[in-house]
């Protein structure tokens, strides 16, 4: 049978009820969102599953006068791809990224909250949302909003329930891009990366450069970011940032790729991302072309 150790599946209708169920289960309960990882990998000490599908976590709404899109943690990846609020963000980069995550069958099940909560190191979603500066609202008896970079794997530290994911809406001087390397479009990434750049008065005001599947979990590469600040994102700045990314000490070997191969991938990926970003800002007249990037 699927999960013979599970003795109870409950479906609370309020966050308060849900969290009480978790606390009262004395460590033997786990949140049930899309359920993919639960069914594949549920540890045998999880005897109670708390199904969050009846909780009010299904909305996608603009907030903070349109500066942020709020996504309920139980929204599926397919629903995100079809949302008119998500589609135009960053020139469709989010929808394009989601289209490369797993299969359509799995995207119909997988939720955004579950995907982030699982903390898979190869997660394309985590990499791009980290670059975009997303925050996660969690509930553990009260609400807290934390930077995605500070959200730890749910199993190891906090058992708080993810309630919403907050994605900043880009203003006119901001652009982002994502790149994934995998054997096939839907396969787990050998490596992925993303950049989000803000421009002010023709100079890079802020930069977020992220790599995931290194094979560690997605993280910012501050050495690459530093190479971009206060530049006009010219060819030299892009080259220096890509070189700095390739020197990232966290790049390691695993069953999918060697460390050296990942260095080449990351250097190429960062260059591609930055070229696309430049073309999407008013700095877009540089001499490098995407065709020319090796």
């Amino acid at each position: 049978m699927g999960l013979p150790h599970v003795t109870s599946v409950v479906r609370p209708t309020s966050l308060e009820e849900a969290y009480d169920l978790l606390i009262n289960a004395d460590g033997a309960a786990r949140w049930l969102a899309g359920g993919i990882d639960i069914v594949r990998q549920s540890p045998s000490d999880d005897t109670t599953l708390i199904d969050i599908s009846a909780l009010p976590l299904h909305d996608i709404t603009p907030e903070q006068e349109g500066r942020v899109v709020s996504i309920g943690a139980a929204v599926t990846l397919t629903e995100l791809m079809e949302s008119p609020l998500i589609a135009p963000l960053h020139h469709g980069e989010l929808v394009s990224m989601f289209a490369g995550v797993a299969s359509p069958l799995l995207r119909n099940l997988a939720t955004l909250g579950g995907s982030l909560g699982s903390c898979h190191p190869w997660s394309d979603i985590h990499t791009l949302l980290l670059a975009l500066g997303a925050h996660v609202e969690v509930y553990d008896g009260s609400y807290h909003t934390v930077d995605l970079a500070d959200v730890a794997p749910q199993r190891s530290v906090s058992r708080a329930l993810y309630t919403r994911i907050l994605i900043p809406v880009p203003n006119g001087n901001q652009a982002a891009s994502f790149e994934k390397f995998a054997r096939t479009k839907f396969d787990v990434a050998l490596l992925n990366c993303a950049c989000c750049i803000s421009i002010d008065a023709g100079r890079v005001e802020s930069a977020r450069v992220v790599a995931g599947g290194t094979p560690a979990r997605a993280a910012r590469i501050q050495a690459a970011e530093a190479r971009l600040l206060d530049t006009n994102l010219d060819d030299a700045a892009i080259r220096h940032a890509a070189d700095a990314a390739a020197d990232e000490p966290g790049l390691r070997e695993d069953v999918r790729a060697s460390a050296e191969y990942r260095r080449v991938l990351l250097k190429t990926g960062i260059r591609r991302c930055l070229l696309r970003v430049r073309s999407r800002t008013d700095l877009g007249s540089g001499s490098l072309t995407e065709r020319g990037v090796s």
Binding site: G2, L3, V6, V9, L32, G35, I36, I38, V39, R40, L49, D51, S53, T78, S103, P104, L105, L106, N108, L109
Partner: peptide
């Protein structure tokens, strides 16, 4: 593999990954 796909509320899903209770 997808061999177990059914429509759940109109959406195709892998029924091997959906708990009946859910």
């Amino acid at each position: 593999c997808g061999a177990c796909a059914v429509l759940l509320n109109g959406r195709a899903v892998n029924s091997c990954l959906v708990l009946a209770a859910k």
